[in-house]
Design a protein around this nucleic acid. Structure first.
Length: 510
RNA sequence: GGCUGGGUAGCUCAGCUGGUUAGAGCACGGCACUCAUAAUGCCGGGGUCGCGGGUUCGAGUCCCGCCCCAGCUACCA
């Protein structure tokens, strides 16, 4: 079976899970589920990024040890992902002992393989003891840190390790040119090409004052204890998750897909491949940079009060509706907007009326006119036209043109709308009154049941719970998620015993 | 400032290498139907395709200029 190792960015353990985190996890989960149903051997990894100054500060502010703090945050994230139905196979944390030793092993390997790639350099700048950080000019006002007016800044010299990123300029240019799909969508690829064209700079990758970090494995000449820069710690999670450096890592690496936010494409498309190349390890196949969910047209901002309670959004119409709305409304290759007005509109129009009601009416008629047994029926124009939409659905999801999850849903819904139209055109309630129309009625109901079964399969990666409910109502074998897309063309529910249950998407009482 | 992408019906967007009266979904109005979660289907109103030039027999679709929006412009993550 072909491997499909997919990851999301690991979330920074400095706050609660929010809509942006959820969007990425739900999108990646849908891609993962899609590939399982397409027959791939999927490994889906998510996790937490738990080191760094901010985490240490937040923990200190709450009066707890950093480890205790991140344990709590990680538990909170996992609870959320379970609630949203994220089918991850692995949850990695950068404080896992295996990750820490893996990162140190990787750094040592780079040092061994490309000894020239790490070098020491002194860095000078204004240092704010309040922040425990070097400050840039724009963070300084009147000679003081904008966050700590009462303290004076200290001109400080610090000796760090640098990574010779500049050496990989040519390598990265070739990588991107030879693998046009390495960074997607196209707009992000262009940005990275522009960035590289400007010329890369070496980056400092260790910090003298960073205590809450993986100890940098090489010793520095001034004898200071160096902590590993958070990204040099975080990026390798994709690799250490495979077990690196123990031998089984080769079974999984390289990753087929890194799903990340557009704000960190640079790190995944430039720094990460350069690190791997320095270690002479395989490069991941693709980085997909999704956009952001905005609220009322604005970016999230804690200070401006632009935020959304995830629990409230999920409870409004249920988890599956929430997943559907995000993936339908926000293009997976660009930004989109979240609003409750729009959510309600889509819930009513798309889920309750178009899809849920189609299932209700079809199943009700099979029970009423055919005793609940799906009649055998020849292929119809409904099947033929759906086949076209199904091909488009796959094109949107299989990676050949990117991961356009919103497009996949659009094509699935074109089937539902065709189904409703077909019901009215065939008017099975009339066919049922005329014994001479018995065969025609079989054809109508058979074709519709076939379409519903098809829809349950198509929708399963997006709405696993509701797809399963529909599958059960249809009386399908096993479970929907164990169906394979390869069998979709020949999927035929003739003979299944349907059972009409509660509406899939009940409208809230007004 | 530079680079990238975008500005098309009230809203969200399709419109590929230029070509008949500019499309879809939602929302809105009318009609039909009754299997269904007062659901569905059909019909309709509604757009000077950001602005101004240009190329062309013909431009939303190509070229130039301008205006506006978003993103990127690297060591907080």
């Amino acid at each position: 079976m072909t491997r499909f190792y997919i990851t999301t960015a690991i979330d920074y353990a400095n706050g609660d899970p929010h809509l942006g985190h959820a969007f990425e996890k739900i999108g990646a989960d849908t891609i993962a589920r899609y590939h399982r149903m397409a027959g791939f051997d999927v490994h889906f990894c998510i996790g937490m990024d738990e080191h760094g100054q901010k985490v240490a500060q937040t923990a200190a502010a709450q009066g707890v040890e950093p480890q205790q703090f991140v344990d709590g945050v990680a538990a909170q994230f996992r609870t959320m992902w379970d609630r949203v139905g994220i089918s991850y196979d692995q949850f990695i944390r950068t404080t896992d002992p295996a990750h820490k030793s893996g990162v140190r092993a990787l750094i040592k390997r780079i040092a061994d393989t490309s000894p020239d790639d790490f070098y020491e350099k002194a860095y000078e700048g204004w240092y704010c003891v309040g922040c425990e950080l070097f400050k840039r000019d724009d963070e300084i006002a009147d000679g003081r840190c904008v966050l700590h007016h009462t303290r004076t800044l200290e001109w400080t010299k610090e000796r760090n390790f640098f990574f010779r990123l500049t050496k990989y300029q040519g390598f990265l240019e070739r990588l991107i040119a030879e693998h046009p799909d390495f960074i997607r969508p196209e707009s992000r690829r262009n940005e990275i090409l522009g960035l590289i064209a400007q010329g890369l700079e070496d980056i400092s990758i260790s910090r003298a004052r960073l205590a809450w970090a993986i100890p940098f494995p090489l010793s520095i000449s001034d004898g200071s204890a160096q902590g590993t820069w958070v990204w040099f710690d975080a990026l390798p999670n994709y690799l250490t998750a495979t077990g690196y450096p123990s031998k089984e890592w080769k079974d999984r690496w390289p990753a087929q897909l890194h799903v990340v936010g557009k704000d960190i494409t640079r790190l995944h498309a430039v720094v990460w491949p350069a690190m791997l190349q320095a270690a002479e390890l395989p490069i991941p196949e693709r980085v997909w940079a999704h956009g952001f969910v905005q609220l009322g047209g604005e970016r999230f901002s804690k200070s401006a009060g632009v935020k959304l309670d995830l629990g409230e959004a999920i409870d409004r119409h249920g988890v599956d509706a929430f997943r559907y709305f995000l993936l339908r409304e926000v293009p997976f290759d660009a930004d989109g907007n979240f609003s409750f007005e729009r959510f309600d509109d889509r819930f009513n129009a798309d889920l309750a009326n178009a899809f849920g009601n189609l299932a209700s009416r079809v199943i009700a008629m099979i029970e009423r006119y055919r005793g609940g047994i799906v009649p055998a029926a020849p292929q119809t124009e409904l099947d033929a036209q759906d086949a076209v939409a199904v091909a488009e659905y796959h094109k949107a999801l299989d990676g050949s043109t990117g991961y356009l999850l919103h497009e996949g849903l659009r094509h699935a819904w074109s089937c539902a709308s065709r189904g409703n139209e077909y019901v009215d055109r065939r008017a099975p309630w009339k066919q049922a009154k005329d014994p001479a129309e018995a065969a025609a009625l079989d054809e109508t109901l058979g074709a519709l049941a076939r379409q519903l079964a098809r829809l349950a399969v198509l929708v399963a990666p997006y709405m696993p719970t509701k797809a399963a409910e529909l599958w059960t109502q249809l009386g399908g074998p096993e479970t929907v998620d164990r169906q394979r897309f390869a069998g979709l063309a020949t999927l035929d529910p003739a003979g299944w015993r349907v059972t009409k249950g509660a509406p899939l998407f009940p409208k809230p009482a007004l």
